[in-house]
């Protein structure tokens, strides 16, 4: 008897609370852009009072959530093909670009001390280069003293756009990798420890001696992890930073990319960083909740107009103005 009154009171309380509650924008997906999304969300909440509840659960999961209509938008680092977009009635547009870096945990090795090339990185992720003093790494880094520690490979356990872009790059530079692993968001890794999300990979590399992982650049810089330089397609050693990312991003031909389908891997150019990713938003053209949908669009519009500086602060590359104009016209396809 007492319990039943308690329950009734509990429900009454909860109901009254939920009525008074202002609707947040809900989204889910890629962990790659999470640092910038949450920074934008915080700033946007201050100017508009509208919050963004973004679940950083991976690109694969994000697509699943938007297909299940549990969120207003899905975020994926993998551009989706026309067929997929049409079957689901989605509109796709790019939000921001960024660089992927390899991070290592070796005593005395700081960011930029080591350099790797695509082939060696592929061999490490194939389990063929097993120790840090392997000849393949040593010839690239003649000046560094490398320990004979085993290489602990850390990779994603979830469906990941970062993995997709990373493996697309490795497949582009290593025929061996393309044949035995290939490009995909969740590939069959021959070796390694699986970690969830960019953050999970970073946390595990931080925690594990002799490990290597791949993450979005902001995850490395924000947490003081040692990234490596890369040898790019022009054979030049480049450092990961905003200018090498911008150089790579500039090679993207967005004007001719239908539905913004474009993959930026192994970009040409002497200054280009080789491992890039673009993160996309998926929304329904005919949303079941138009109010929520236009609230989300309002947020994205604000981010395009006011978010470039914040993105660059975190070393993301904002979309060029021409692409933003393209996106805004694509939004006309979303019912209000």
């Amino acid at each position: 008897m007492k319990f039943s009154t308690l329950i009734a009171a509990g429900f009454a309380l909860a109901a009254s609370v939920s009525v008074a509650f202002a609707e947040d924008i809900s989204g889910a997906g890629a962990t790659f852009p999470y640092p910038i999304y949450s920074k934008w969300a915080d700033a946007y909440k201050k100017v508009s009072g509208v919050g963004l509840n973004y679940q950083s659960i991976g690109s694969g999961a994000g697509r699943k959530q938007i297909q299940a209509k549990t969120v207003t938008f899905g975020a994926t680092d993998i551009p989706q093909k026309e067929e997929y977009l049409n079957t689901n009635g989605f509109v796709q547009f790019p939000m921001v670009m960024g660089g992927i870096v390899a991070i290592v945990n070796l005593e005395g090795v700081a960011g930029g001390d080591l350099v790797l090339d695509g082939d060696t990185l592929a061999k490490i992720y194939l389990g063929k280069v097993k120790t840090w003093d392997d000849a393949a790494i040593a010839t690239l880094n003649p000046k560094s003293k490398l320990p004979s520690l085993p290489i602990i490979v850390i990779r994603r356990s979830d469906g990941s756009g970062t993995t997709f872009n990373f493996t697309t790059y490795l497949s582009a530079v290593s025929a061996d990798f393309k044949k035995s692993v290939g490009a995909g968001e969740a590939v069959e890794w021959p070796v390694g420890i699986g970690a969830a999300g960019n953050a999970g990979v970073a946390a595990n590399v931080m925690q594990t001696k002799g490990s290597i992982g791949y993450v979005e650049y902001a995850y490395a810089t924000q947490n003081g992890l040692a990234w490596t330089d890369m040898v790019n397609s022009a054979g030049k050693r480049v450092k990961p930073n905003l200018s090498s990312f911008k150089a790579a991003a500039a090679k993207g031909d967005w004007a001719n990319a239908k539905n913004f389908y474009l993959i930026l891997a192994n970009s040409p150019g002497e200054a280009s960083w080789p491992m890039m990713a673009t993160t996309f938003i998926l929304m329904y053209a005919q949303p079941s909740d138009p109010a929520a949908s236009s609230a989300a669009l309002k947020y994205f519009d604000w981010a395009y107009s006011n978010g470039a500086k914040m993105a660059e602060d975190l070393d993301y590359v904002p979309m060029p103005d021409s692409v933003i104009a393209q996106v805004r016209s694509a939004w006309k396809g979303i019912a209000k």
Binding site: G60, A61, R63, S157, D158, G192, G194, A196
Partner: peptide
């Protein structure tokens, strides 16, 4: 060596599976 269990596989992959 790293491995997995039934429950760990469910916990880490279920949310994104389809």
């Amino acid at each position: 060596a790293p491995s997995t269990t039934i429950s760990a596989a469910i916990a880490s992959e279920f949310a994104e599976s389809e």
